[in-house]
Amino acid sequence: MQITSWIQLCLRELEGAPIKEHSDIEASFAESERFSKWKTSKREIRFEDVSDRCWIKSCTGGYITEVHLHADGSLDEYTLFGRLHTKGHWELESGVLHITIYKGENTYELSVVGNREPSIHSAIEYKNGEVHSYLKLTPISQ
């Protein structure tokens, strides 16, 4: 995950403001005390948190889905009530969960950063490479 992506998520969570584009982010913010303090509230996502687990994903617009993450790196996503089915894949890299979902002509990409307490994690979602939404995700207990 690029440092600007970390800063982008941090600013969204600290300021509650609209998501800034990468080009609008000052990389020097990564050296700030605010960024360091925010980062200590995060944790690495582990393989056992992800493999063969179901997560609930919601966005600021109220769209809620369940995401089934399979051990082989594939995933199935279903809208919570309409049961619209989409597919994609996931990978875990340096404690960050990277998800790609394909819906028709659109590709959605997100990098999920773990939260220490509570276990409701967060991400910025990109639709076809452009900022789309701020997300919250949480694994469902098995």
Rank of each mutant, 00 (worst) to 15 (best):
1 M>D: 08
2 Q>A: 13
2 Q>G: 11
3 I>Y: 00
4 T>A: 06
4 T>P: 01
4 T>E: 05
5 S>V: 02
5 S>K: 03
6 W>V: 03
8 Q>D: 05
8 Q>L: 01
9 L>W: 03
9 L>G: 01
10 C>I: 07
11 L>D: 00
12 R>P: 03
13 E>V: 14
14 L>E: 15
15 E>G: 15
16 G>D: 03
16 G>S: 06
18 P>W: 07
18 P>A: 15
19 I>W: 05
20 K>Y: 13
20 K>F: 13
22 H>W: 02
24 D>M: 14
25 I>R: 00
25 I>N: 03
26 E>H: 08
27 A>T: 14
28 S>H: 08
30 A>G: 06
30 A>P: 04
31 E>S: 14
31 E>A: 14
31 E>L: 15
31 E>N: 15
33 E>W: 04
34 R>K: 15
35 F>I: 13
35 F>E: 06
35 F>A: 05
38 W>H: 10
38 W>D: 08
39 K>D: 09
40 T>N: 15
40 T>Q: 15
41 S>L: 14
41 S>D: 14
42 K>M: 11
43 R>T: 01
43 R>N: 03
44 E>L: 11
47 F>Q: 00
47 F>K: 01
48 E>V: 10
51 S>E: 06
52 D>A: 07
52 D>I: 03
53 R>W: 07
54 C>T: 10
55 W>F: 06
55 W>Y: 03
56 I>S: 03
56 I>Y: 04
61 G>W: 07
61 G>A: 13
63 Y>P: 01
64 I>V: 14
64 I>Y: 00
65 T>Q: 05
65 T>C: 09
67 V>F: 04
69 L>Q: 03
69 L>R: 00
70 H>M: 13
71 A>K: 14
72 D>Y: 10
74 S>V: 06
75 L>P: 01
78 Y>E: 04
79 T>D: 12
81 F>M: 05
82 G>T: 12
83 R>W: 08
83 R>L: 11
84 L>Q: 05
89 H>L: 09
90 W>S: 00
90 W>L: 02
92 L>I: 08
94 S>P: 02
96 V>Q: 07
96 V>P: 03
96 V>L: 10
97 L>G: 01
98 H>I: 03
100 T>V: 11
101 I>A: 06
102 Y>E: 13
104 G>R: 08
105 E>L: 11
106 N>T: 11
106 N>C: 13
111 S>I: 01
112 V>R: 01
113 V>I: 10
116 R>K: 15
116 R>W: 07
116 R>A: 12
118 P>M: 09
118 P>A: 12
119 S>Y: 08
120 I>Q: 13
120 I>S: 10
121 H>D: 12
125 E>Q: 14
125 E>V: 10
127 K>I: 08
128 N>H: 11
128 N>Q: 12
129 G>M: 00
133 S>V: 02
135 L>W: 04
137 L>D: 00
138 T>G: 13
138 T>Y: 09
138 T>S: 13
138 T>V: 11
138 T>R: 07
138 T>C: 13
140 I>G: 00
141 S>F: 12
142 Q>F: 11
